[in-house]
Simulated assay, not measured.
Amino acid sequence: MFDGYTMGEIGAIFAMQGFAGLILFSVFVLMALGLAIIFGQMGVINMAHGEFMILGAYVTYLCSNFFADYIPALFGIYFFVAMFLAFLAAGALGALVEWAMIRHLYRRPLDTLLATWGLSLILQQTYRSIFGAREVGVTLPDWLMGSFALTDIIDVQINGLFVMGLTLLITVGVGLLMFKARFGRQVRAVMQNRMMAGAVGIDTEKVDRKTFALGCGIAGVAGSAFTMIGSTGPTAGQLYIVDTFLVVVFGGAQSLLGTIASAFTISQSQSAMEFFLSGSMAKVLTLLTVVGILMLRPQGLFSLKVRR
């Protein structure tokens, strides 16, 4: 596998693939954070999570075209506006879906799986009807283009650094929200004991709706970040949904720290193996490794200790 490479070249390859793995890690974390909130905290298997991500990507695409055509002087800041609008659009759609469908299916995980899978097909066809079947891409501002040359053979992409910084800010924000803010305490109370949470005055239905909307909104921001590393199409979200569920389950469905650790482990493993092996073989080996570990530790890397 390493035949024909010098030690210096191997080190450079691992450094470049490690950075590529960090970009993939950032997208995984943004996707998995929203899914961990919905699946881990609410027990809802949301198979349409990838479509909420693609909604954010399409919102970013529309913002890119709007600023380029009508406000070219402000094109350099359109990405920040696009991320905010992507969060609002995906969050609003998530709140609507929770009110119209999900709230009738709590404590019925297989029903939520089938219902959200049908929703994903509906959203895919909606995107295909509105934007067409061909993939589209966004034009990045000049300040996000280019790279930094760390050495003669190692370059670091600026947009990759931006995605990683964005992921860090959102991760810290979600952590503070879930563990320091009043809303986070309410979410954890409802997750641990819904009846008792309702008995002490927490509006559990409102908490459910806000929680689902928050998870979908984070997926929308992940869609904005996704436009920097891939093109946007109606079915692009399905390429990441399996990996995202794998990240959440492997890390521990109710642990945000486990989600981050799992995303880092899986993304770095896939990125390194994809260079020396085929992409499909890298996924197969990663999946087999994760399955083997879950057989020994079914609760995942991290698990919450709850007194019952």
Results as ranks from 00 to 15, higher is better:
158 I>Q: 00
158 I>H: 03
159 N>W: 09
161 L>R: 07
162 F>W: 07
164 M>H: 03
165 G>D: 02
166 L>C: 06
166 L>S: 02
167 T>N: 01
167 T>K: 08
167 T>V: 13
168 L>W: 10
169 L>D: 09
171 T>W: 08
171 T>S: 08
172 V>I: 14
174 V>T: 10
174 V>D: 11
175 G>W: 15
175 G>S: 09
177 L>G: 07
178 M>H: 01
180 K>H: 03
180 K>F: 00
180 K>W: 00
180 K>N: 07
182 R>E: 15
183 F>T: 05
186 Q>M: 13
186 Q>W: 06
186 Q>Y: 07
187 V>R: 04
188 R>N: 14
189 A>G: 12
190 V>E: 01
192 Q>A: 11
193 N>R: 13
194 R>N: 08
194 R>M: 07
194 R>H: 11
196 M>L: 15
196 M>K: 13
197 A>E: 02
197 A>P: 05
197 A>R: 10
197 A>F: 03
198 G>D: 14
198 G>Y: 05
200 V>M: 11
201 G>H: 12
202 I>G: 00
202 I>V: 09
203 D>K: 12
204 T>K: 11
207 V>I: 15
207 V>N: 12
207 V>R: 14
209 R>L: 14
209 R>K: 14
209 R>T: 15
210 K>S: 11
211 T>V: 06
211 T>H: 06
212 F>T: 06
213 A>D: 12
213 A>E: 06
215 G>W: 08
216 C>S: 14
219 A>Y: 01
219 A>C: 07
220 G>T: 05
220 G>H: 09
221 V>W: 00
221 V>E: 05
221 V>S: 02
222 A>D: 08
223 G>P: 08
223 G>V: 06
224 S>N: 03
225 A>Y: 00
225 A>E: 02
226 F>L: 15
226 F>C: 08
227 T>A: 03
228 M>H: 07
231 S>Q: 11
231 S>L: 09
231 S>W: 08
233 G>T: 08
233 G>C: 13
234 P>D: 03
236 A>E: 14
236 A>T: 08
237 G>Y: 04
238 Q>R: 12
240 Y>A: 09
241 I>F: 10
242 V>Y: 05
242 V>F: 13
245 F>K: 09
245 F>A: 07
246 L>P: 02
248 V>A: 07
249 V>S: 12
251 G>W: 06
251 G>V: 11
251 G>E: 08
253 A>V: 13
254 Q>R: 12
254 Q>E: 12
256 L>R: 06
258 G>E: 10
259 T>S: 05
259 T>V: 10
261 A>D: 01
263 A>P: 03
263 A>L: 04
263 A>E: 02
